[in-house]
Design a protein around this nucleic acid. Structure first.
Lengths: 282, 282
DNA sequence: CACTGTGATACCCGCCCGGTATCACCGCCG
DNA sequence: CGGCGGTGATACCGGGCGGGTATCACAGTG
């Protein structure tokens, strides 16, 4: 009686996103009337009005907003279930680790080596993805574990194991006046007037307003700084990929950034458990 | 093409639990042939063998075990979606907080009072549940937030805010030789020979093997200790409900137990957000 | 007031879910 | 060794429901 089908949830999410039945139907590849009927049926089954149909378009009710959130996570979960099941069947003893460009190489290598040395360890495939994508691939089942950064990445809903905590460093063009200093503070960076501070994306992939260039990987950052057009901050392990045109100065009062191993809760997979155990001993 | 329907997942989970098509069909209230067909269809759609049908019963394949885990969380999520949506509609501005018998009264009261003083705060319904039930009611949508204890409760998959950290205390019959001490260590407790140590359930609701009586709430503990049949441990705030027949002695080297406010990730509900903010300021 | 664009309604069709009957296969006994 | 019971798979059928087309009711707009 009250078992929501994923088809209904898919329909509802699409309508809630479009706030327009005809467009939603088109996106779903069905006609508008069956869609209207499906939503009505969902509302009847729940005994709840989800959408306010006024002459001037469709709006979500309070309950509809709740269901939109919930439905998205359910649909993600269903997609993840399918992907993980397929992966479990196709490569029976392997797991996928998501990381991002700019992740600490040495740490990753140390983790992989330590795990490979374990008895009957699984094969690890490394999935390189963009800045904010790790949470998504972890949620939708394309990866089993991920290396992420707290507090910069969105860790909501994952279990984590801390691997390494570092401070931030400032990265300046080698010839900059401040490049000779042995340490800097956050205030020093903010006070730099001749060069803008490159801005990293936030968790929602938007950028904090400000004058500096918007960057999304460390190569862009390296280029901009080498060209003398910006200064930037990164975690201390970034020193390994800097060029001679760069100067790295410790930021003594920066927030700590922790590299963590993250995985979806309730992973009962033995391979994941083994990797976590290995990580905990690093 | 690859959207798992909850009906299929429900069927699969039942078969995986029963490892018997006919019994599973009976539990599901359908006949056996449609169930067989549904599972085959699921396997065809995934391109994966989920069940090994041998004479002598059915067993799960590796991939089947993965899907069983994933499917359970998806089904929980779907049930939670329905419950939360209904609750959001029926009591538009209220939220449910799950706690357990034995939870620190003062802390709860302080939290509720502080939150009630906030501008346009929602009404809070308190749901009292058994020892390990909070995680379940939080997962299946009967509650929006919960008060739980780390590291004793299963917090996997929830976001948390720490409220209070305490040590453990030993609770002894008032007349016990050790009751006169001003402090004890874990070793002292283990060394007690004349009385067994009452055992709390673990996260999976099983009990560590041992001689002491198995308890599941603090009233049982209080009774047993008052009768002089056991000693026990509890967090320091337990002192508020002890009787005169009890002696509470601090355990100087005990692990810290933290009372946390936990909620499902991605709660975008304003009411939950407000409660969290209030809690963070306590 | 015709026109456009919205979601809702009416109605029909075809597929798929579920039911019954039966089969194929094996283990168990007498 | 041959019936017997119990397993899941197969065959086939009927009904309900998901999806389609046609149309309506209604409001905003020129």
């Amino acid at each position: 009686m009250d078992t929501l089908e994923t088809r209904e949830l898919r329909y509802f999410v699409t309508v809630a996103e479009e706030l327009h039945f005809s467009r939603a139907a088109e996106r779903l590849g069905i006609a508008q009337p069956p869609l209207s009927r499906a939503i009505q049926q969902l509302e009847r089954r729940l005994g709840v009005i989800l959408l306010e149909r006024s002459r001037r378009g469709v709006t979500l009710t309070r309950a509809g907003q709740v269901l939109l959130d919930e439905a998205r996570t359910v649909l993600d979960g269903a997609a993840a279930a399918a992907r993980r099941t397929r992966r479990a069947a196709s490569s029976p003893n392997s797991l996928t680790l998501a990381t991002k460009a700019g992740m600490n190489h040495e740490l990753l290598r140390k983790l992989l080596d330590a795990y490979a040395a374990e008895p009957d360890s699984a094969e690890i495939e490394v999935l390189l993805c963009g800045m904010g994508d790790q949470a998504r691939v972890l949620r939708d089942g394309r990866a089993d574990v991920a290396l992420m950064h707290r507090p910069f990445d969105d860790l909501a809903g994952f279990d984590t194991e801390d691997l390494l905590t570092e401070q931030l460093i400032a990265i300046l063009p080698a010839g900059h006046p401040l490049a000779a200093r042995t340490s800097l503070t956050m205030a020093d960076i903010s006070a730099i007037r001749d060069l803008p501070l490159a801005r990293w994306p936030r968790q929602d992939a938007t950028y904090e307003p400000g004058p500096g260039p918007e960057i999304h990987d460390q190569l862009q950052l390296a280029q901009l700084i080498a060209l003398g057009q910006a200064v930037g901050v990164h975690c201390a392990s970034a020193q390994s990929w800097l060029w001679s045109a760069h100067a790295a100065i410790p930021l003594t009062d920066s927030p700590h950034v922790t590299t963590v191993l993250a995985w979806p809760p309730h992973s009962r997979s033995l391979a994941v458990a083994g990797l976590i155990r290995t990580a905990a001993q690093l």
